[in-house]
Design a protein around this nucleic acid. Sequence first.
DNA 1: TGCCGCTCTACGGGAAACCGTAAGGAAAGG
DNA 2: CCTTTCCTTACGGTTTCCCGTAGAGCGGCA
Lengths: 221, 221
Amino acid sequence: MFRKVLIAEDHEMTSISVTKTISELGIADTQYTYYCDDAMMLLKKAQQAGAPFDLLITDLSFEEDHRKQKIAGGEELIALSKSFQPNLKVLVFSAENKSALVDKLFTDFSIDAYVRKARHDAKDLRAAIEAIAQGKKYMTADLKQSVKVKNTFEFSSIDLTILKLLSAGTKQKDIPAYLQANKITPSGLSSVEKRLNIMKEVMGFSKNEQLIAYCKDYGII
Amino acid sequence: MFRKVLIAEDHEMTSISVTKTISELGIADTQYTYYCDDAMMLLKKAQQAGAPFDLLITDLSFEEDHRKQKIAGGEELIALSKSFQPNLKVLVFSAENKSALVDKLFTDFSIDAYVRKARHDAKDLRAAIEAIAQGKKYMTADLKQSVKVKNTFEFSSIDLTILKLLSAGTKQKDIPAYLQANKITPSGLSSVEKRLNIMKEVMGFSKNEQLIAYCKDYGII
DNA sequence: TGCCGCTCTACGGGAAACCGTAAGGAAAGG
DNA sequence: CCTTTCCTTACGGTTTCCCGTAGAGCGGCA
């Protein structure tokens, strides 16, 4: 089992429960932070002191407040942590249930476990920590399904750009100019139209308004 | 202070922390459920047994799973609870930060407190419970600001209808037919255009997509 | 009743978006 | 080096949307 655990989680309530769960597993040495920058600092200090953390439990999204942060969110924190302490085990504890995102975390960021904030997350978290301790990977059950079943449409970077521009009031015909100015290809008006058509077709939508509403509902933009 | 508290919250971790916070306030008799239907049942039972709950702490969104529920979410739960136990105090504990939504909860559902799941939510929750116990209303600080600032334009019923139709994929020119079918006046296409123009002008917007995005962001539709 | 002010509706010209088609261009493969 | 294929872009015709104007309906008031 782990000896020293760091929790990066901006919700106080969640942080309390995570701490409690860990202490129930017999891990005495836990620290927690509400900010990514603090988490980074603690990781570095611990390593320099010769007593590095061996598990990081982190959320993905951290809300901005008066304290300006260099590290914006969980992904960045994970990447930086791994870069100077590659053996650090990482458990992501987040409400996100997008299969593509979770996949990326496992492949690109080589995390060890993903626990989704949901109905039985306390049990899941315990199971995940035990699994990692045995050198296994862990993923909440519901996500395993959704990776297979909910083959939801993957919005590309340019799709998101287009949607953001539209919801910012940009006229469709003015989008090519913006794309060119920002060196984004493809930039033709037809390509913009094509992307919008594909998005709408996949979703079974007929109008841009509908698409924007959907993306807002699911936090895509 | 309260004697008997019911917690309706589908996230196990959050539920644990809420329970802990409440017990720290010296409230011994707390029960928790992961489902709205269960919450409703417990409220009814308690009242029939002559020992009703005097505080309900509930989330807004409950995830669906294998257990089919009659009550879909927090709003519905609150409405039903109040209908048969009007003196029940209600504290909403949710991650939503849409001012329009929170406003609606206070005015239409006459809740007593809204605590947003955020950085200092444990402190906020404690403060909220103490405020309610003294017969006060409570709202997290960050929301007070946004309610005041953003609550400029008053969306009429027909405005909301138009916006909902648009975001459901209805063509603008087909909206008059819908309005007539539902006996809503005015129903002319020009009137629809006029309402949209007014909304956009007030907000400083130029396109419908922008308007939809705004309304989704602030929970207006 | 006749005038006035108001809102809703109808119409038409122009702009933007939609949609199909075809030409241009780069990468992959023989 | 050429061909095939896929993707991007360009260009028209049609639909929808946008916007200004004008007329119709309705209540208030002298």
